[in-house]
Nucleic acid binder design. Structure first.
Lengths: 192, 192
DNA sequence: TTGGCGCGATAACAATTGTTAAGAAATACG
DNA sequence: CGTATTTCTTAACAATTGTTATCGCGCCAA
């Protein structure tokens, strides 16, 4: 299982760190849209931090592209599980927009982890927040129908709907692009 | 958000502990079926460990009973979030079968936590496993339709289907009892 | 500039699911 | 035991979603 390491309010790569002290451990890269950063079934070697742009993680479900999560500026992306176990990732990481990323290798990240005081506590809090995030997503699916889930996403994460192509959002909501298009149409009609 | 403290392979209340040392901190109770142990909107004061029977956590979604998770023998049940924050629980905890439970108060649990070496690491691992559990449930919803989810549950957790009333399972799968009944019928017909 | 391609809208039809209601079957309990 | 209650099934119809296909628009690169 692939788990994202970071939340929008992430300290991992940002505020609490003096980046001048770690600059030699991190590489900045620019990638065009639709660049694969981690291929499904390969072992995760790097973690990424988004300076500009957006990424998604997705997997191939019997030939169908299923998007699992979206990431934007100031978020970190990686596969904790693949880091922990050295097992092949069950997901791919791919850029949606042209993006500017910070790249840190597994070993360098571990180095930083040791040097940053209170990291363990932060990590626990972070995993706890992830837990809340996924349990919330699960709840959204058992208590809401697709239209309600779309409206919830629109209310809570409008930036996703604004920046991400619709067919990715459809699979994230667990429906087809055609159905999402219809729902949008219906919602628009009901507003008038 | 309510989070379960325990997994089937749970050390919290069991194997690694010498229960004779803690017996004064824990109370054993017997409850009939449909007993509410924690009421939605109340603050969680106790954690439970199931010696015999089964529990569920659920919430009221606009008048509809939505079951979030099931628990069986040797599992612990509580609301970490309510423990942590002292905030009202967003869920109810209720017995499904007549059950024999161990009850431990929040303060006594905290006492034990301090006395048990390596508890922090265990807690982190536990939360991590919960994270995997919920991300898996979320995945199941975006990649599978209701029938596939039912078959997955049947394959991975047959004990749930055997012991839990069907209408609870239906809400857990995010569908109506009527639809679940049809799916079961269809699956049975396809087997022949 | 322009052809190709990604993306979204729409249509028509099939399949599934929801809703409501009624009744049968199983279970609980005095 | 028998009665109540809970649980499950089935039916009929409405609503939603999936499937397949077509069309048009905008963007990007040759």
């Amino acid at each position: 299982m692939c788990i994202m390491t970071n939340q929008p309010t992430n300290k991992f790569f940002t505020s609490d760190l003096n980046w001048d002290d770690y600059r030699h451990l991190v590489k900045e890269i620019n990638v065009p849209a639709k660049t694969t950063l981690l291929q499904e079934s390969e072992v995760s070697k790097n973690a990424y931090f988004i300076k500009k742009g957006c990424l998604r993680i997705w997997f191939n479900n019997n030939g169908k592209d299923v998007t699992f999560q979206f990431f934007f500026e100031n978020q970190g992306v990686s596969s904790i599980e693949s880091f922990k176990s050295g097992q092949p990732s069950l997901f791919s990481i791919e850029s949606i927009e042209p993006s500017t990323l910070l790249v840190i290798s597994k070993s360098n990240l571990e180095l930083m982890v040791k040097e940053i005081p209170g990291y363990q506590a932060f990590m626990q809090e972070h995993i706890f927040q992830r837990l809340n995030h996924y349990s919330k997503l699960f709840l959204s699916h058992i208590k809401n129908n697709p239209q309600e889930r779309y409206l919830e996403l629109l209310a809570e994460s409008p930036h996703i709907i604004q920046r991400v192509p619709q067919h990715y959002i459809a699979s994230y909501l667990g429906i087809t692009p055609v159905s999402l298009s219809r729902i949008r149409n219906k919602v628009l009609a009901e507003k008038k």
